[in-house]
Design a protein around this nucleic acid. Structure first.
Length: 831
RNA sequence: GCGGACGUGGCGAAAUUGGUAGACGCACGGGACUUAAAAUCCCUUGGCCGAAAGGCCGUGCGGGUUCGAGUCCCGCCGUCCGCACCA
């Protein structure tokens, strides 16, 4: 009688052995081909959640599989450990952010180990370790020296709740991404990284990323937002000039107004002497930036009374408006309006009764009068445009740019949506920016031998704002240049800086440098990076920028950090509400009623697990109940990895049952004689199929194939082939269910660890069936099937099909009009 | 508004280049074993008609291409995601 698989005992035993033998420690000097598998490192928020489990299980299966295929695999883990939750905890619980963070790391590390991930813990790092952020400070200073960092007084997004500056990317619909508070504009001196210097490279580089999802590449492309056009000058009636940018210089003869932003220097100047303009500008600034507001917001303009002279006609003057739809921080903050061929301009022109002149033919009419409220933005030839008449749009664009450049009033330009990366944060729990401000010398880099600039431990969080700024002594230092009293920079770096190079530090972590070039280049780029799609823009763009900056500085000869990217779906769960409409957790209910009150509950939509909806399932107790392999198996089953996975009790039960089924096979293995060609064939097909599925990260398909194989083995009669299939199965399931695989490996008397075993060889002859089922169709509808030898001659197959009783009956004695034979597949008889 | 993805049984899903739709899992139902339960095993399960053999219908909807369409093309509908007054 077969015993039960004791998962808890086996999990602990094998995890201890892997740890003791350092099974998963990657060797830099290994002669094997190298493969770097990385999942996005977690923020140590307290406990791991199901999303982590799914993410790391996927990476682990791939990493373990590649090891078995003979590669030296780097599969490290660390902690994205700086950030605001630690400060929030400090404020709420009075615990130091560092203590809180390291405590969480200890908890989560133990949890990850409990699931048996094959991780190289010898390379573990936390971004809040001075050994890490000190090297980051060194890299920051390198960037300062390379001219990639600058300081700028600028209007910033100020989050009044978190009391910090946010990057544009961290402002969502005008609200702070974390606090949700409405963001204000403030002027502060900030440090910026010149990511825009790399805009072109970052855009072009996307083309090389064959193993990235198109969706992510497109999102980055849109974010970088390259626009080519003409920047040119209008002479204004006050004697000055206004620069505008347009992507449609071809439509220049359709212009009917010039519009400038409320924050445009000219508008500010006009507002000084004119309260009406000042009031209007104020109204523009107050306008919301949320999607809904923009859609409903009316186009508003204020006619300044000034006019601009058309560059091609000194007699032609255009009114200059201040308009609420023109943004100061895009292009040059001013546009020329061509209502006939731009919807926004048309809305504006209709409202203020400005001329609307057609300059691109829509193919139906060339008349200058433009009717209707829908701008024509399609292709066509230029009309009513003097020397441009008859040209195609692209041709006309070039012609106008040539004239502008030749006559010196404009220039072909590229404008980017991407802005430089503001990295200053007025927070404590982050990497201190290694700069000292001196009244005489200005900002001075901290000398290298004084790195790391460490955070002071004795800080308080009883009031909002930056504790570094309030600290009695920390910021007071002597200027490294002149020795006079000076002040430390009290801002810290955006935590996205920390995650922009951790993958390099994993590959190489000397104590005296950020990394060793040669060693890091052996591992990089990351072959497969796995994480959530929520990082499609911010983290992935910053990391790409950082890598290119390192290359620019000659520190690392790698262009792209992540050769392959996979964005996995979320783990979801049903939601429940009590009779009073409060969220209930799955533990609060049983059989459709709330346990505490006996009241019936309502079941809501399946949503991403979140604390606020109380639909989370803590992996901890689940692993203790079912064992690590069952949890891993469930994470890989059913849903394709890029889609959401719904957690369910039935699902984990099913996974657990499968683990027990495996064990009955392994445990019941007994010697037997004889062949079983069909089973051996199934085995080899499964080995090949699972390997392919794992490489493609199609884990759900690999799981299905393994179920099929197990079904086949269970049904097969005892034979040597069956015994062989069971022994081989141990290795095939090992990447996914490593604990039971080790247990079985030892039980059947194999040497060493299955983790060190090689992936089973495939007998390619076994992949090919020697008999095939051929579908027989009449007019494309299945009527019969034939079992024939593989590779049977076309004529034989056709003859067999036409001889089929059913086909004969269907044809009623008439000859077929046509017969199509697809070898080894089907016969279609056209009646 | 712009861009993208998706739509297949009661559910999660498979279906390599157009070639037997629904593999595999979950759930449901029936049965075996058991004093009973759990566990395990076996059978059934897209819909309709039929005792059965068999037939008809079926991949969001409407067209089209093809010997043959879940897959390709055109037009709709719906869901989800990203961006958004970007000149």
């Amino acid at each position: 009688m077969a015993s039960r698989f004791n998962a808890l005992k086996a999990d602990a035993a094998w995890q201890a052995i892997w740890e003791e033998r350092r099974t998963f420690a990657a060797k830099d000097d290994s002669p094997r081909p190298k493969s770097y598998v990385l999942e996005m490192f977690p923020y140590p928020s307290g406990k791991i959640h199901m999303g982590h489990v799914r993410n790391y299980t996927m990476g682990d299966v791939l990493a373990r599989f590649r090891r078995m295929k003979g590669m030296e695999v780097l599969h490290p883990m660390g902690w994205d450990a700086f950030g605001m939750p630690a400060e929030n905890a400090a404020m709420e619980k009075g615990v130091h952010p560092g203590a809180w963070t390291y405590q969480n790391i200890d908890t989560m590390r133990a949890q990850l180990k409990r699931i048996g991930f094959g991780l190289d813990w010898t390379r573990e790092l936390a971004t809040c370790d001075p050994e890490y952020y000190g090297q980051e400070q060194a890299l920051f200073l390198d960037m300062v020296e390379a001219g990639l960092v600058y300081r700028k007084e600028s209007a910033v997004n100020w989050d009044p709740v978190d009391m910090t500056v946010l990057a544009n990317e961290q402002v969502i619909d005008g609200k702070g991404w974390r606090s949700g508070a409405t963001v204000e504009r403030r002027k502060l001196s900030q440090w910026f990284l010149k990511i825009t210097d790399f805009a072109d490279e970052l855009l072009d580089g996307l083309g090389e990323l064959k193993d990235w999802p198109d969706k992510v590449k497109l999102m980055q492309e849109n974010w970088i937002g390259k626009s080519q056009g003409l920047q040119f000058r209008f002479t204004v009636s006050d004697g000055g000039a206004v620069e505008v940018f347009t992507t449609r210089p071809d439509t220049i003869f359709g212009a009917s107004f010039v519009a400038i932003a409320a924050d445009h220097p000219l508008a500010l100047k006009l507002a000084e002497g004119n309260p009406e303009i000042a009031a209007f500008s104020e109204r523009c600034r107050a306008g919301g930036t949320s999607a809904a507001e923009i859609e409903t917001q009316e186009k508003l303009g204020y006619n300044t009374g000034l006019t601009a002279t058309h560059p091609f006609d000194p007699e032609w003057s255009l009114p200059v408006y201040i308009a609420n739809f023109v943004l100061m921080d895009y292009g040059v903050g001013a546009v020329f309006g061509v209502p006939a061929h731009d919807q926004r301009d048309l809305d504006f022109a209709r409202k203020y009764d400005l001329p609307v002149k057609r300059v691109v033919s829509d193919g139906n009419t060339d008349a200058p009068e433009f009717a209707g409220d829908e701008a024509y933005t399609g292709p066509g030839k230029l009309v009513n445009s003097q020397f441009l008449d008859g040209m195609e749009i692209a041709e006309a664009k070039k012609a106008v740019i040539n004239r502008a450049e030749g006559e010196g009033w404009g220039k072909g330009t590229t404008v980017w949506r991407l802005r430089d990366w503001g990295v200053s944060r007025q927070r404590y729990w982050g990497t201190p920016i290694p700069i000292i401000h001196c009244e005489s010398c200005g900002p001075v880099p901290v000398p290298r031998d004084q790195l790391p600039v460490t955070l002071p431990e004795d800080v308080s969080f009883d009031v909002p704002g930056n504790p570094l700024d309030r600290h009695p002594t920390w910021k007071h230092v002597a200027c490294p240049k002149c020795g006079k009293p000076a002040r430390r920079e009290t801002d810290t770096l955006d935590t996205f800086v920390d995650s922009s190079w951790y993958f390099v530090r994993f590959a190489s972590q000397p104590s005296d440098a950020p990394f060793n070039k040669k060693v890091a280049e052996q591992w990089l780029p990351v072959k497969q990076y796995i994480g959530g799609v929520e990082h499609a823009i911010l983290h992935l763009l910053y990391a790409r920028f950082w890598t290119r900056a390192l290359r620019h500085m000659g520190q690392l000869d790698i262009a792209e950090p992540f050769a392959g990217l996979f964005t996995q779906g979320m783990v979801t769960h049903e939601t429940y509400k009590s009779a009073e409409g409060k969220w209930l957790s799955p533990q609060d209910i049983r059989d459709g009623v709330e346990i505490a009150t006996g009241q019936p509950i309502t079941t809501g939509r399946v949503e991403k697990m979140s604390k606020s909806k109380k639909n989370t399932v803590d992996p901890g107790p689940i692993v203790e109940q079912y064992g690590a392999d069952a949890v891993r198996w469930f994470m890989l089953s059913d849903s394709p990895p890029e889609r959401d996975l719904e957690w369910s009790e039935a699902g984990i039960e099913g996974a657990w049952r499968f683990v027990q089924r495996l064990w009955r096979l392994f445990d019941g293995l007994e010697p037997a004689e004889g062949e079983d060609k069909a089973l051996t064939r199934k085995l080899h097909q499964t080995i090949a199929g699972v390997a392919q599925d794992i490489e493609r990260l199609s884990f759900n398909k690999a799981v299905a194939k393994l179920y099929e194989l197990v079904n086949a083995i269970e049904k097969a009669k005892p034979s040597a082939a069956r015994g062989d299939a069971i022994r081989t199965l141990i290795r095939v399931v090992a990447p996914m269910a490593p604990h039971i695989a080790e247990e079985a490996w030892a039980k059947v008397g194999e040497d060493g660890l299955v983790a060190d075993a090689t992936w089973p060889e495939i007998d390619t002859a076994m992949l090919v069936e020697d008999e095939v089922t051929i579908a027989v169709q009449v007019n494309g509808k299945l009527r019969d099937t034939l079992l024939m030898a593989k590779g049977a001659a076309k004529d034989d197959v056709e003859a067999a099909a036409l001889a089929s009783e059913k086909i004969v009956r269907m044809l009623e004695g008439k000859p077929p009009r046509k017969v199509i034979v697809v070898p080894d597949r089907l016969v279609n008889v056209v009646a």
